[in-house]
Write a protein that binds this DNA or RNA. Structure first.
Length: 239
RNA sequence: UUGCAACUC
């Protein structure tokens, strides 16, 4: 089973999701039971293919197996349903889980984000906080942009404050900081956006794009142009 | 050997 799992994972990594399904069928034909390592991979492949029928078939197998309360499998299922545009099903899996970990929460939050369910994402986030689960950089990178899209500057600031309290791993993270730049730009607080942007240690192309499109949206053409030139000087190409 | 996240497009 280990060899099959490694093979499936390798295909999944290179985006060969159809091949994953193929191997999955073959391994079962060869008499091997998919285990708790196989299933998350294969569910991810279904998500990659946006194949709801395949995803549902694997889900049905999961329910019949011993693995139906595995955290990895359930997070993968949430992710898969969200990817296939079935946030209702994703939420159902989430609600029916006996215990949830941080990734379960993050999966349902990002599921709502994918469907433009910004309000819902923030509601889930607040119940998550109420359940005493501490967010990580994935959580914040989903939830901060949600504030931006809803123009909730106060909430955004509050979450920014929380990120700082959570320490360096959080407040020094590129994704979190790029999200903050995006959120402040959307909320037209360009001073804060600029301040965060300037403080990002390992700025990447996403940080630059967030700042640039912020200027563009706020009709600050000159600032945008200057920044664009600066970006080129740091060796980034236009995108 | 397994699951989640940021901008633009």
């Amino acid at each position: 089973v280990l060899s099959w799992n490694l093979l499936i994972k390798a295909c999944s990594k290179s985006g060969q999701f159809g091949q994953c399904i193929e191997l999955y069928v073959q391994m079962q034909r060869a008499g091997f039971e998919p285990d708790e390592f196989t299933l998350p991979c294969i569910i991810n492949a279904c998500a990659g293919l946006r194949s709801l029928p395949a995803g549902q078939a694997v889900h049905a197998q999961v329910l019949k197996s011993e693995q139906h309360s595995n955290l990895y499998i359930n997070s993968a299922l949430i992710h898969m349903y969200a990817h296939c545009g079935r946030i209702i099903h994703a939420k159902k899996v989430f609600d029916e889980m006996d215990d949830r970990d941080l990734v379960s929460w993050n999966s349902i939050v990002s599921g709502f984000m994918k469907e433009d369910g910004y309000e819902e994402a923030l509601i889930v986030f607040s119940t998550m906080r109420f359940s005493d689960v501490e967010p990580n950089e994935s959580t914040l990178s989903s939830v901060i942009p949600a504030c931006g899209r809803l123009f909730k500057l106060h909430l955004g600031r509050a979450i920014h404050g929380e990120a700082i309290k959570l320490g360096d791993a959080m407040s020094g993270d590129v994704s979190v900081n790029s999200s903050l730049v995006f959120m402040y730009s959307k909320c037209r607080d360009m001073d804060s956006a600029r301040r965060v942007f300037a403080s990002i240690p390992g700025r990447n192309v996403v940080s630059w794009n967030a700042m640039l499109s912020g200027y563009a949206q706020n009709k600050q053409g000159n600032e945008a142009w200057n920044l664009f030139r600066e970006m080129q000087m740091e060796g980034y190409e236009a995108s």
